[in-house]
Design a protein around this nucleic acid. Structure first.
Lengths: 131, 131
DNA sequence: TAGTCATTTCGCTAATTCGCGAAATATAGT
DNA sequence: ACTATATTTCGCGAATTAGCGAAATGACTA
């Protein structure tokens, strides 16, 4: 158990990192597989996993495990939605956020089986093969 | 110059510390002198000054210097107000925030000249002398 | 002009955070 | 059972942050 003050601090700490904001921005559109998030961010899988754990601990997203894959989506809570709506207005036009969305749109056409185990460059190759 | 993403990160980092949230909560009621904030938080003046500088850099509050004293108030921007309104709903009933408000209410009756140069204990003595 | 005092800046140490690779976990397919 | 593999956990070095006291700054006062 924790106080409202410390919980609020934890939430804001979770939002205080570009990679974690990028993750939340991606998840606004739809639930995603961990490997898709890893491919878009271009960071080591262990690093992304830690960021996802931070966001989950802060109550901002929830995980769903389906076989080997882990799917993440935004937590449905009221306060989470209000909070993300707030910074979303400022961030939606950010170049990094927009390029993330563009890359993610292309990744959607790649089967998850091919995407996983591939770093960002391989992901791009897979895109060119599938479009 | 910075991107919208990095600016948003900076704002959330500023909100990701209990002392800084306590400062913003206090300033919701009214502008305050630095010495009043120092007395309520019970931290070293240099520490509080650093927190205030963080909040100012994030654009969340603005400073006004009047003689020897520095007065701080919330920045009047729209987004700042929306953001503080969000976490305020969760934090307003926090015991730490409430005791801050109670102490601050009593500090208001103490002249600034007596309050300054006094730590929290001296501040309490001053309160008992003035009520 | 010299002194006092509120506040900030500086220098430092301890604690936390970030990122990675390696190892561990767990699940699908053979 | 065994292998392959998606994800997480662990251990560690680099970078950042938090706190303090000491010194510097700037403004009132005598």
């Amino acid at each position: 158990m924790t106080t409202p003050l410390l919980h609020t601090v934890q939430v804001h700490k979770a939002l205080g990192h570009p990679a974690r904001l990028r993750i939340l921005a991606m998840l606004r559109r739809s639930e995603l597989c961990a490997c898709q998030i890893i491919a878009v961010l271009g960071l080591a899988p262990s690093t992304v996993s830690a960021h996802l754990a931070d966001l989950r601990r802060a109550g901002l997203l929830i995980a769903r495990k389906s076989g080997r894959w882990a799917h993440y989506r935004l937590a449905p809570s009221q306060s989470t939605r209000a909070m993300t709506d707030d910074w979303w207005r400022r961030v939606r036009r950010d170049p990094q956020i927009r390029s993330d969305a563009a890359l993610l749109g292309q990744l959607k056409s790649v089967p998850v089986e091919e995407l996983c185990q591939a770093d960002l460059n391989l992901a791009r190759l897979a895109i060119s093969r599938h479009t």
